[in-house]
């Protein structure tokens, strides 16, 4: 397969996945911002929830360059519609569609039609329309488009190299996004140390779980109160949780085994090493090191792996 084609496919998948994760993050933020905290714990002001998606995505600096005030409207505008924010849902859908258009021959016509119609629909949204039809409604639409795209890909595409590069892009992006979402809790301050384990703490953890579709799974697996330790276990180490780091690395390692030949064994080894750390890792160690520190290390490793994939397969020198 052409390197240029592989590059477009990989980024097409990453952009769709990023749009979905951004929608998840905003959805949960939106729900949390609606909760009547004053009623739950009188006297407690809620730490500003609209800062969370900005911190998670590492976009706070970019945001304050164009917006003066942190408000629901500004964050939604910035994360959904802003054409200057390359990670906005608008830009992600545009980039995914542009990539698909550039490599139409490598994907099925259903896949292109799907991304093209997602983009055509996205173009008619403005802030008023999103407000009037409901923010959650819009974010559900983004998630549905991403599900649809994955389904169309899974259901129509030949299991060739193109498919593997798409899968690689999806899971590299998802691993990165899940780690960032999980790290949010570290950045989200509680009103005071005494609130650890309180109602606000509980809502923050459950919101986090919901944002990665993990709330119901958590209940199924643990049938118990939400504790940070178990959330970490669920989203980092459990292989059966489709958005966990372990699950993502399963896919990444497996895909690289197919894509690598003798000249690229080193990438496969690096991925294998990272995979092994998750496969044989223990929750105790994560907690001992500190969840935040553990996630930072993981983000560094996954970004280094992404850089390797880039120079070996996508944009060779």
């Amino acid at each position: 397969m052409l390197c240029r084609t592989a590059n477009e496919l990989y980024w097409m998948a990453r952009h769709i996945e990023r749009a979905e994760n951004t929608a998840r993050l905003l959805d949960v933020t939106y729900r949390m911002a609606l909760l009547p905290y004053e009623t739950i714990e009188p006297g407690l002001a809620w730490a500003e929830p609209w800062a969370v998606p900005l911190i998670t995505s590492g976009l706070a600096t970019d945001f304050y360059e164009s917006y003066q005030q942190l408000s629901a409207e500004n964050v939604l505008r910035f994360m959904i519609l802003d054409s200057a924010n390359t990670s906005s849902i608008y830009c992600c859908l545009r980039a995914a569609r542009e990539s698909a258009r550039a490599v139409r021959g490598a994907i099925t016509s259903e896949m292109y039609e799907d991304l093209n119609s997602a983009w055509l629909e996205m173009r008619v949204y403005d802030y008023n329309r999103i407000q009037s039809s409901g923010v959650s409604e819009f974010l559900d639409w983004v998630k549905m488009r991403s599900h649809l795209f994955r389904g169309v890909t899974f259901g129509t595409m030949l299991r060739d190299e193109a498919y593997h590069f798409i899968r690689l892009g999806t899971h590299i992006e998802r691993a990165d996004n899940t780690a960032r979402i999980l790290d949010v809790k570290y950045h989200t301050l509680l009103p005071s140390a005494a609130d650890v384990g309180g109602a606000v703490d509980y809502y923050q953890w459950s919101a986090l779980l919901r944002s990665v579709s993990g709330f119901e799974s958590y209940r199924k697996i643990y049938s118990d109160v939400i504790t940070p330790r178990r959330v970490a276990e669920l989203l980092i180490l459990r292989a059966d949780m489709p958005r966990s780091l372990h699950s993502c690395m399963n896919f990444i390692h497996e895909t690289l085994r197919v894509l690598c030949d003798d000249s690229s064994r080193e990438i496969e080894r690096v991925a294998g090493e990272l995979h092994a750390k998750l496969r044989y890792g223990r929750t105790d160690e994560i907690i001992k090191l500190g969840l935040h520190e553990y996630l930072l290390e993981f983000l560094d490793s996954i970004s280094a792996l992404g850089a390797e994939i880039n120079t070996r397969f996508l944009v060779p020198g």
Binding site: M1, L2, C3, R4, T5, G105, A106, F165, P316
Partner: peptide, 20 residues
């Protein structure tokens, strides 16, 4: 393959595609 100029190169008068 659908190629652009940047995807092809010539070596010893033969034409090659840059592939993965």
């Amino acid at each position: 393959e659908l190629v652009e100029g940047q995807d092809l190169f010539v070596q010893d008068d033969a034409v090659f595609m840059r592939t993965t």
